[in-house]
Design a protein around this nucleic acid. Structure first.
Length: 487
RNA sequence: GGUCCUGUGGCCGAGUGGUUAGGCUCAGCUCUGCAAAAGCUGCUACUCCAGUUCGAACCUGGACGGGACCUCCA
């Protein structure tokens, strides 16, 4: 297995990845809350971890990838105030909470399918693990790191922080957190202002509630991840991931819960993906500046001048490293679209390349460089730069300006198959349906007529044919060997 | 206000103490009846100020700008 370096939020540096029980790898990623449509920011995170999952698998690891579905709702406020978001929307629309959850879960999976991401190994739901969450809360109470007030169970952060490093993940100072926590309503029940709920007492009108030792209620925001990661990956596993915005609160609290529960920090490597921005601002549900994926695909959002194929969007995202912010704009998307099309076109050209006895290019070096890029914290920006080298070589060879042996052509094929398809999870438009075959024959007939016109130097007619085909969406490219066409 | 991150060419976006990122755009050339495509060439940057260094866009300090988190969010 080759050496893979990845950036660990816990240590704030790149480290060599060492699996606890190689070749097996356990990876947990915080999934979506299904009370509304997924937006692109969510998608970027899941596309990034899909890439990580794909690459780990590609280099030989057997990965169990767990990504939860949060279907139990989160509170809007802190502590015991606020309302379960899923119940709120349900009441608003007169729907069952699980109906909302179902709608958006299906939608989420459909969007992930369009982005050609692989399904996680396990996709557990919070509502399916209420018992496990209660058990963890019970143990934490027994160990003295949580207390119950009026049917709500709080985690005692100050007590925990005396014995363990509560802010290990972010490196923040506890005193500063205590000083800077904003004043919020409903602090009354909690002993400390940083305390957070493990279990929350439900009001009678709450639609989603479960029986517990502390009365009817529902789980707190962070405990589902502790429960489900422990259940499916054990108390100690390899990689835990999520969006960067989860690190200070959600992941910090999750670590505290796990440590309080079993004395172990759950994951060796904590990986965080950066935010997607629109006009320089974080794309977020609460800011209302998020595009829905389908608005991007069909170009219906006011900020967009046209729609983009999901593969173009994915390629656009992969051009930026996962730990950098990525800003959305039409110009950037258009540039990505052209680049992606070039990579796709070159793949077609590759299949028809002429073989030479010798190669003028070092293809093995490119393959090595691709692995080096990925081994350096999944650097897809650099990987894609190498892929454009591949494109240039293919086109040069096609133009007769470079030569390749069959072995090198096969290697180029392998680079596409490994990196473009397997690792990046990109795919090109399918070409060989029945309809297209028929269309192809028709186009060939028309092109043959155009060749005749050209032979007769009737350029007016040949241009007219080309223009009309262009209007019909068929692009004509003339070359020495004849004319090519594409949709 | 506090903590942290960040500032690269017309645009997007990597990276490194001294060596080409890459893509898109634009201009020129080759090819072509023309066009398109492709190839080649050019436009060659690193917010500002000070310091460390033989040498800094890359290290240090400061200034200014942007962002994230501190409140549910991927």
């Amino acid at each position: 297995m080759q050496a893979l370096n990845l950036y660990n939020t816990l240590t704030r540096k790149k480290e060599e990845f060492k699996a606890i029980n190689s070749p097996y790898v356990g990876m947990y990623v915080c999934g979506p809350t299904v009370y509304s449509d997924v937006h692109l920011g969510n998608c970027r995170t899941f596309i990034s971890f899909d890439l990580i999952y794909r690459y780990l698998t590609h280099i030989g690891y057997k990965v169990r990838y767990v990504r939860n579905i949060t279907d139990a709702g989160h509170l809007e406020g802190d502590g015991d105030v606020g309302e379960d978001k899923i119940s709120k929307k349900a009441k608003l629309q007169q729907l069952e909470p699980m109906e909302i959850v179902q709608t958006y879960t299906v939608d989420f999976r459909e969007v992930m399918r369009l982005f050609n991401t692989l399904s996680p190994s396990i996709e557990p739901t919070a509502t399916g693990h209420i018992i496990e969450q209660q058990e963890i809360a019970e143990v934490i109470i027994k160990k003295g790191y949580a207390y119950e007030v009026n049917g709500t169970v709080y985690f005692d952060v100050e007590k925990f922080a005396k014995e363990y490093n509560y802010t290990a993940l972010t490196g923040r100072k506890l005193e500063e957190l205590l000083e800077n926590t904003r004043d919020l309503d409903g602090q009354g029940e909690k002993k400390g202002r940083l305390d957070f709920a493990l279990w929350i007492k439900a009001k009678p009108e709450h639609l989603m509630q479960w029986r517990s030792a502390w009365g009817n209620g529902f789980p707190g925001w962070h405990i589902e991840c502790s429960a489900m990661s422990t259940k499916y990956l054990g108390e100690h596993f390899d990689i835990h991931g999520g969006g960067m915005d989860l690190a200070p609160t959600h992941h910090t609290n999750e670590i505290a819960q796990n440590v309080a529960y079993c004395g172990k920090q759950p994951a060796n490597y904590w990986m965080h993906t950066n935010m997607l921005t629109v006009n320089g601002q974080k794309m977020s549900k609460s800011l209302g500046n998020s595009f829905l994926p389908h608005e991007l695909f069909n170009g219906s959002h006011p900020l967009l001048t046209k729609g983009y194929n999901p593969m173009v969007v994915k390629f656009f995202m992969l051009q930026t490293h996962y730990r950098s912010t990525l800003d959305f704009s039409n110009d950037a998307l258009n540039a990505a679209e052209k680049g992606f099309m070039r990579i796709a076109e070159a793949y077609k050209t590759l299949k028809n390349l002429k073989t030479s006895a010798t190669s003028s290019e070092n293809i093995t070096a490119i393959e090595t460089a691709c692995y080096e890029a990925m081994n350096d914290d999944f650097n897809t920006s650099v990987l894609i730069a190498h892929l454009f080298d591949v494109v240039r070589i293919i086109n040069s060879t096609n133009d007769g300006k470079a030569t390749l042996t069959q072995k090198d052509i096969d290697l180029l094929q392998k680079i596409y198959s490994s990196f473009v398809f397997d690792v990046c999870g990109l795919k090109f438009e399918e070409e060989s349906s029945e309809a297209k075959n028929t269309l192809g024959k028709v186009v060939e007939v028309v092109l043959a007529m155009r060749v005749k016109a050209k032979e007769e130097k009737n350029f007016q007619l040949s241009d007219e044919i080309r223009n009309k085909l262009t209007d019909a969406g068929i692009k004509i490219k003339d070359s020495k060997e004849g004319s090519n066409w594409s949709l």
